[in-house]
Simulated scan of single mutants.
Amino acid sequence: MSFLYPRLLSGQAAPLHERYRYLTVTELADLAGTGHASAVYVATGGDRVPETKLEELRVLVISLAREAGFPGESDRERRALFDRRLATAVHASMGLAPAEAASGDVWAFVALVLLPDISYWRYPRPPGDRVLGTDLTRHVVGRMWWRAQLIHSPDDPDPYAAMSILGEDAFDRIYSRRRALGGSPYLVKEILKVWDGLDLQGLPYRETLEDFLKRLLRLAPFVLFESLAPDVLHGELRAIAKETMTAVMEASEAGSHEIRHKIEVAFGS
């Protein structure tokens, strides 16, 4: 069952952010709540999320954050683990439809009203897009919900197993191209399957992924990826990955024998 969530419009969210960014985590915890006088709901059918569910969500996220050091200091590794657990938890528990999750105002409410202490602990004195929902690829909670949405495989024993295949930076590179690529869970999951099976043989990770995505983007206007059968799509993506690895190695002036060997190793052929 999906719910409608409160929305905090930009006129109310921006002043809160300006105030909250200078408060302590303890002060922000005292300001957290399940409602706001200025919050609104979209004027469509659907059940509004119960207050008890919002309370449960807050308790759940705080428990995950405590494992990562909240409210004190943390480190990069524990923050990354927190993010992955947060993605799974909010996607599995919030009952959000994608159309509702596409609203930045929903995520502004979550960050500034329900979880202000978590938001500003995870990103101390953050730029506005981390909490306001103006860019969902950057939002402290919203980006993680979408990350889980795009890799979620409900028929698998572990529906979120693909969460750890790509790091945050790599995933953001896909999601930032969502109009052509990142908006399709079907395509993203196939990208992850191909990418997870590659042995890059010491090639620069970021450069290789960037080249791979650029090649996909060039095809996007001409290929309806959603219409391809899984085995066909998988084969197309592997072919693009081979082109990418070849191009990256040629740019580094690798010899033809070395390129052929690395391609064989990478693709098991």
Score class of each variant (00 low, 15 high):
Val232Pro: 13
Glu56Cys: 11
Arg178Glu: 07
Glu243Phe: 07
Pro204Lys: 00
Asp158His: 11
Arg122Lys: 09
Val110Trp: 02
Arg147Cys: 10
Arg79Ser: 12
Pro98Tyr: 06
Asp231Pro: 13
Asp83Asn: 13
Leu23Asn: 08
Asp83Phe: 00
Phe3Ile: 00
Leu216Tyr: 02
Gly142Thr: 04
Val265Trp: 03
Arg130Leu: 00
Ala162Gln: 06
Arg138Tyr: 09
Pro127Arg: 08
Ala229Asp: 15
Gly104His: 05
Val49Ala: 03
Ala111Val: 02
Pro154His: 02
Pro157Gln: 02
Phe267Ser: 03
Thr246Gly: 03
Ile151Tyr: 07
Leu213Ile: 07
Leu203Asn: 06
Glu18Ser: 12
Val42Glu: 15
Leu9Glu: 11
Ser63Leu: 09
Asp172Gly: 14
Lys189Tyr: 04
Thr44Leu: 05
Asp30Asn: 08
Met94His: 01
Pro116Asp: 13
His234Ser: 11
Leu115Thr: 04
Glu18Thr: 08
Glu250Phe: 03
Glu210Ile: 00
Pro230Cys: 05
Thr24Leu: 01
Ala13Tyr: 12
Leu213Met: 04
Leu64Trp: 05
Val140Ala: 14
Lys262Thr: 10
Met245Trp: 11
Ser256Phe: 13
Arg238Gly: 10
Pro50Asn: 01
Thr34Tyr: 09
Ala241Val: 12
Pro126Lys: 00
Arg79Ile: 15
Leu136Met: 09
His139Lys: 04
Pro15Ala: 01
Met1Gly: 13
Thr208Asn: 06
Gly11Arg: 13
Ala108Pro: 08
Ala92Pro: 02
Met1His: 02
Ala161Gly: 02
Ala29Ser: 12
Met163His: 09
Arg206Asn: 15
Leu203Val: 09
Phe212Leu: 02
Asp117Glu: 15
Lys242Thr: 12
Arg218Phe: 08
Glu168Ser: 11
Asp129Pro: 00
Asp169Phe: 07
Asp129His: 11
Val188Phe: 09
Leu64Cys: 08
Leu213Ala: 00
